[in-house]
Amino acid sequence: MSIFNPPVKWLEAPHGYERVWIGIALAWCLVLSAAMPYWHFKGRQTSSGEAYAVTPADFDARVTRFVEANQVDTRSGLPVVQAPPGGDIYMIGKLWQWFPILKLKKGVEYRLHLSSFDYQHGFSLQPMNMNFQVLPGYDHVLTFTPAEAGEFHIICNEFCGGGHSTMTGLIIVEE
């Protein structure tokens, strides 16, 4: 009984079906463990967590310079910024907007710098449903390649105060 004291000599090796199940479960756990390193080397999606310390004010200034140098249009009152293919691009989460709108080329690799001006934010790119954490004080670099053309929305999926549900953004990918 599990509520009474066990026999004084309770130490015994597993046997029968129980032993077989433990073996199978262990083998499955090995598969689970091997899958992540395998994907790390063979797969094309990972979160390497590359990041650099930056103050919110400094990062905001970099975003401003980036926008001033590369703005091509305005939409919904926000600058649309066309970055040089393959270069560094910037986006900041600010109460309550992803800023600016980015215009990218399909199939080109970019280094996207993400940070927050205030609270923690969640960068959630839809409809692919790719999600990354954005923290104040951290320049989070995602090296990524847009694989298809079209308009892709960003929502915020980390609670960031009263206007959280209105925090959206846009990435435009051209052929």
């Binding site: 994907w39 979160s47 999600n131 999926n157």
Partner: peptide, 11 residues
């Protein structure tokens, strides 16, 4: 799982 979390985090 490390990489799968990309399509799940905070959803």
């Amino acid at each position: 799982t490390h990489q799968i979390n990309i399509i799940a985090h905070n959803t």
